[in-house]
Design a protein around this nucleic acid. Structure first.
Length: 596
RNA sequence: GGUCCUGUAGCUCAAUUGGAUAGAGCAACUGCCUUCUAAGCAGUAGGUUUCAGGUUCGAGUCCUGACAGGAUCACCA
């Protein structure tokens, strides 16, 4: 039984014995005591005044007196208004700490027998990844790892949008202007090469529109009849009919893009267990339309189009199949949802997709539930806010997009110059130094994007946003490196820090106790991060932990401590902190260095 | 216009899901390296939580209504 559970069940007994009232432990809540008061846990008595029939102070006092007698862990208490602050004795904290140290693996809860698929990244193959994709990828990867750590079996999936009119646009431009250019002939990364032609298409297309408008054609008509647009549409038709030449070009260009994406994914440190391609899935879902019609979930209009009526759920009527029998976006998403279940028998399915698609997923999930899918209740849209620049929204056509590869490199370069400025690379080989810059640069970037509540829109200022001090990735990495240095020294002079080495310990300092408390919180925070699909909770926790450790580090000596068992204890605390930081950062997808 | 999301220190974000005197970081200022990494620690200053009502022992948090920003409302994806 955990410390909190023990105290709570004592409180339950207190209610039974003092007030002859039964309360359920699950309904009782302890909260951490605020710093300005004495104690570790606080029980708020206000909600129970009707039961106690006493004023707040007297109620708190009665429960406090009971707990001091009945609970092993509670050694003292104080009452401020209706707040009962409980002081936990030192022996309990030491027990907690030894319990933490004896765990075989840190931050890994037992398997819960459930399977979840986390779909993230899901790029278009007509242009390279940008800042917005970075948030998506880091979020998706981290949420997947966090769920794995809380006991789920996780399948990371990437649904690649590799077909459609936008892909054909790049192909049209390449066909006309490419001159056989390849990634190796141009030195351009494959995804950037495809992106170049996507931009070229847009440029030429605009020129064609204005030429037509100059000839007196309305802008609306010009947009439809510009030669390259017609060509792109024709190309899409040919692609769908399996035209050899077009499919060949499509395969060639997509192949380049995948090489580029692979490199970026590798640099980002994300990975996938399963790739789905829209070129394989875009025809799925029509059978579900039939199913929905026969189940009466969908209905057909006079022109033959098929709709779902969600007005009783506060939404609108929504088209699920065109009058000509062709699919729309949601048709294939219905099909893909079933496909995912068919492939993996998942209990939950998480879609990491921006909040601009809130309505779409609302509709999709309601449909799948109406259809009675077993996984219906497990569908979740992890809807994250856009990343804005100081200049506003990123717009590819206005050239205000922050390219992912460029940004990552910029971060690594900044880490390098910053590290050199501080003169911290003595004794590093060139390779080690390069590795460190990458760890720090990516750590800063990932932490910056993950520390904010996913559903909130966030601002990214390329000049100012990324710091290396304060609430940042490198601050936490630095804390780990500091401890690693201590552990190296401990090994060097042969100090043991197993629990036996500090068995004689009787009293602990406040800074030590506070560190134990926060170390003890790790699994709770991990669980909460999984339940809320929010790496930000974990990020915030790791910052608090690192801060707490640094306070401990500044306040108390380690190797200058004369009492050997105290020294061992402090090294053990340091070790446990390093393990927790390392594991927590790993779940955010961030590496930690041993020196920096 | 309908629907949804957001609004907290100059800036970027927290706030244990309704609890105490709303906390961190950055920027500014003051201390601390002859001791384990100063990418650190301690401190000062900075707030009518957009506004107006309401619910109750208690509201940044819940409800109503304004205001501001964003997203979405295609037989596009």
């Amino acid at each position: 039984m955990s410390l909190e559970q023990g105290i709570l069940s004592s409180i339950q007994q207190a209610f039974a014995e003092l007030f002859n009232h039964e309360v359920v432990v699950e309904n009782l809540q302890l909260q951490p005591t605020r710093k300005e008061f004495e104690g570790s846990y606080t029980f708020v008595v206000f909600p129970y005044l009707k039961v106690t029939k006493l004023n707040p102070e007297a109620s708190a006092k009665a429960i406090g007196d009971y707990l001091v007698n009945a609970s092993e862990a509670v050694s003292a208490y104080n009452v401020v208004k209706g707040f009962l602050n409980l002081v936990v004795n030192q022996a309990s904290w030491l027990d907690i700490f030894q319990g933490l140290m004896s765990k075989p693996q840190i931050g890994q809860l037992p398997a819960n027998g459930k399977k979840v698929m986390v779909e993230y990244s899901s790029p278009n193959t007509n242009k390279p990844l940008h800042l917005g994709h970075l948030r998506n990828n880091f979020l998706g990867y981290s949420v997947a790892e966090i769920m794995k750590a809380t006991g789920y079996e996780v399948i990371k999936a990437n649904l690649v949008n590799d077909r459609g009119i936008h892909i054909c646009k790049s192909m049209v431009a390449y066909k006309h202007l490419g001159n056989g250019e390849t990634p190796s002939s141009s030195g351009l990364k494959g995804d950037h090469l495809a992106g170049k032609y996507y931009v070229l298409f847009d440029k030429t297309y605009k020129t064609q529109i204005s030429e037509l408008v100059a000839q007196g054609i309305s802008e609306e008509d010009a947009k439809k009849s510009a030669p390259w647009m017609l060509e792109a549409q024709e190309m899409l038709r040919l692609w769908e009919s399996g035209d050899e030449e077009i499919v060949g070009l499509w395969k060639l260009m997509n192949g380049w893009v995948y090489e580029g994406f692979d490199a970026t994914y590798q640099k980002m440190g994300v990975n996938f267990d399963k790739f789905y391609y829209e070129s394989d899935t875009y025809l799925l879902g029509k059978d579900i339309v039939e199913e929905g019609l026969s189940k009466g979930v969908f209905f057909k209009k006079e022109n033959g189009s098929v709709w779902v009526d969600l007005t009783d759920e506060g939404l609108d009527e929504k088209l699920v199949l065109r009058a000509d029998g062709t699919s729309v976006y949601i048709t294939q998403d219905m099909g893909t949802a079933d496909l995912k279940y068919h492939d993996f028998q998942i209990d939950k399915s998480v879609y990491v997709v921006g909040n601009e698609q809130d309505y779409h997923f609302d509709v999709l999930f309601k449909i799948m539930r109406k259809l009675g899918r077993s996984y219906g209740e497990g569908l979740y849209h992890l809807s994250y806010g856009m990343v804005d620049l100081p200049t506003g929204k990123m717009k590819s056509r206005e050239g205000t997009v922050v390219d992912a590869d460029d940004l990552i490199q910029e971060m690594i370069d900044t880490a390098e110059s910053h590290t050199k400025e501080l003169g911290k690379i003595d004794g590093f080989t060139e390779g080690q130094a390069a590795e460190l810059y990458e760890i720090l640069g990516l750590g800063a970037l990932k932490y910056f994007l993950l520390k904010v509540d996913p559903k909130k829109r966030m601002l990214f200022n390329p000049q100012e946003s990324i710091e290396f001090q304060g609430n940042t990735g490198p601050f936490i990495q630095y804390s780990h490196a500091r401890i690693a240095s201590i552990l190296r020294k401990a090994a060097q002079i042969g100090v043991s820090y197993t629990p036996e080495a500090f068995a004689d310990l009787t009293g602990i300092q406040d800074a030590e106790r506070d560190l134990i408390i926060i170390l003890h919180d790790f699994e709770k925070k991990l669980t909460q991060a999984a339940e809320d699909y929010s790496p930000a909770i974990l990020a915030q926790y790791l910052f608090d932990l690192a801060k707490e450790y640094n306070r401990f580090y500044a306040e108390l000596p380690i190797f200058n401590e004369q009492e050997k068992f105290i020294q061992s204890f402090r090294i053990a605390l340091s070790f446990q902190t390093a393990q927790t930081i390392k594991r927590g950062m790993e779940l955010l997808g961030i590496k930690v260095p041993d020196r920096m």
